[in-house]
Design a protein around this nucleic acid. Structure first.
Length: 196
DNA sequence: GTCCAGTGGT
DNA sequence: ACCACGGGAC
């Protein structure tokens, strides 16, 4: 859950440093993160960037966890996907991607995580011309559910999209060496950027 | 669209 | 010296 918040607009390597700092400080628990000062938390998570905004979000999140569920994730997880998602989205600093990451990865709920890569890749491939988060999420869930074991498929597909986005379908795409070049229509890729 | 902000790659 | 990064708020 901490990772889901810290990953915003940064890389895993930096998130790991931040989480390692929290571990080394001995405050890796809802109770303790709730207790330490905002400034102390800011210092711990500095490597993950946007550290003031993210420290505030973390504080708000653990307060939510403490007040609503006595700090127990198992207690939180008894609520339905829909109820929980709406509650998470009300927390300042938690948008749809972060909420859905918490629901899928931390709570094993059946929801597909749409991220910036998903929108960019789908747009370029020509799967959709809309960047509407919910439309893409519903589309992915509908398609992947027919494969059975939704949670596993949602996990795996998201991981594969991230892998493709990080190495090939980057902001400046590497179409020449992309494993998907034969089936990609490149509708969203500008001409001069296609064959890098 | 702009800001938040440290870190790594080019 | 740039640029980009597994977002979100305003």
């Amino acid at each position: 859950m901490i990772g889901a918040i810290l990953i915003q607009q940064t890389t895993w390597k930096n998130v790991q440093k931040a989480i390692e700092n929290i571990k080394l400080s001995g405050t890796l628990s809802p109770e303790l993160i709730n207790l330490i000062s905002l400034e102390e938390l800011e210092n711990l998570i500095k490597p993950s960037g946007f550290y003031r905004v993210k420290a505030r979000t973390l504080k708000t999140y653990v307060a939510f966890l403490m007040e609503g569920y006595n700090g127990r994730i198992s207690s939180m997880n008894r609520e339905s996907l829909e109820i929980l998602r709406n509650k998470l989205l009300k927390i300042k600093g938690i948008g749809m991607e972060t909420a859905d990451s918490i629901l899928l990865y931390a709570l094993k709920k059946e929801i597909f995580v749409v991220d910036g890569y998903t929108k960019r890749i789908f747009e370029r491939i020509g799967i959709t011309n809309s960047r509407d988060h919910e439309k893409i999420r519903i589309l992915c869930e509908r398609s992947l559910r027919s494969e059975g074991n939704s949670i596993y498929c949602f996990n795996e597909m998201h991981a594969l999209i991230v892998a493709l986005g990080k190495s090939y379908c980057k902001k400046r795409p590497k179409c020449g060496i992309c494993p998907g070049k034969d089936l990609c229509q490149k509708k969203g890729v500008k001409n001069e950027q296609r064959w890098n």
